[in-house]
Simulated scan of single mutants.
Amino acid sequence: MTRGIRGATTVSVNEESEILDSTKELVETMIEENQVQASEVSHVFISITKDLNATFPAKVLRGIDGWKYVPVMCMAEIDVPNSLQKCIRIMMVTNTSKSQEEVNHIFLNEAVRLRPDLIKGE
């Protein structure tokens, strides 16, 4: 079965290093928490809010061992008034035997406010 794994994080400033570091932390946590293998990933979409333009967060995936050929695309998030700012969202689509309820969606930093209903307890 193909499933989507959601992830989101925020940064405090629009700087390349912070965007890349935060994206890397998010992607690596998504991979670890869901036992994802690059060869099982169909594609990854990354959206960012309009206040983040210092770099392409997708660059991070190219540096992860085995992820060179996974298709990744960045795009702009819809600019909804009063929405969470400086936010990076990821949709990773992968083959998995997990049910939808077993998928671990990852929300870090201020992004925990986006979907508190999906955050699993430790």
Rank of each mutant, 00 (worst) to 15 (best):
11 V>R: 03
69 Y>V: 11
31 I>L: 04
6 R>Y: 12
99 S>N: 08
102 E>T: 05
121 G>T: 07
111 A>P: 03
67 W>T: 09
93 V>Y: 11
2 T>K: 14
27 V>K: 00
71 P>M: 06
8 A>H: 07
121 G>K: 09
8 A>W: 01
15 E>I: 07
102 E>V: 03
81 P>Q: 13
108 L>E: 05
62 R>T: 09
48 I>D: 00
86 K>G: 07
1 M>W: 07
89 R>A: 10
40 E>G: 02
3 R>V: 08
53 N>F: 14
112 V>Q: 14
80 V>Q: 13
53 N>G: 15
80 V>P: 02
21 D>R: 13
118 L>F: 06
93 V>K: 04
45 F>T: 03
108 L>F: 05
34 N>E: 00
46 I>M: 14
49 T>D: 06
77 E>D: 10
108 L>Q: 09
121 G>W: 11
98 K>M: 03
7 G>P: 00
4 G>L: 10
112 V>N: 04
42 S>R: 13
65 D>K: 11
69 Y>I: 07
40 E>C: 08
25 E>T: 04
47 S>K: 08
85 Q>S: 15
118 L>Q: 09
28 E>F: 02
40 E>P: 03
13 V>I: 14
75 M>I: 11
60 V>K: 02
89 R>V: 02
44 V>K: 04
96 T>L: 06
98 K>N: 01
44 V>E: 04
122 E>T: 05
79 D>R: 13
70 V>D: 08
43 H>C: 11
28 E>H: 05
16 E>F: 05
73 M>E: 15
74 C>V: 10
67 W>E: 06
16 E>I: 14
1 M>Q: 10
47 S>R: 11
57 P>D: 08
80 V>W: 10
55 T>E: 09
118 L>A: 04
115 R>H: 08
117 D>C: 05
93 V>L: 15
49 T>E: 06
76 A>N: 10
4 G>N: 13
92 M>T: 02
37 Q>I: 06
119 I>A: 05
2 T>L: 15
112 V>G: 09
15 E>P: 01
59 K>C: 02
95 N>P: 03
109 N>V: 06
28 E>R: 10
64 I>V: 07
101 E>W: 10
76 A>I: 03
88 I>H: 06
106 I>M: 09
121 G>Q: 14
119 I>E: 04
16 E>R: 15
8 A>P: 01
76 A>D: 11
104 N>P: 00
3 R>W: 06
115 R>L: 02
5 I>Q: 00
45 F>S: 12
118 L>E: 04
91 M>R: 12
35 Q>G: 05
62 R>N: 12
100 Q>D: 11
105 H>Y: 08
37 Q>H: 12
85 Q>E: 13
57 P>N: 07
75 M>L: 14
79 D>E: 15
30 M>R: 01
121 G>E: 10
3 R>T: 01
110 E>P: 04
53 N>I: 12
116 P>C: 12
33 E>L: 03
121 G>C: 02
94 T>M: 03
67 W>V: 09
44 V>S: 02
18 E>K: 12
9 T>D: 00
1 M>N: 15
32 E>N: 09
36 V>E: 12
14 N>C: 01
5 I>G: 01
102 E>L: 11
54 A>M: 07
14 N>S: 07
94 T>Y: 08
52 L>S: 04
76 A>R: 15
29 T>Q: 11
46 I>Q: 10
78 I>R: 13
122 E>A: 08
63 G>V: 05
102 E>S: 14
60 V>N: 04
111 A>T: 07
87 C>D: 00
17 S>K: 12
43 H>E: 11
105 H>F: 12
58 A>I: 14
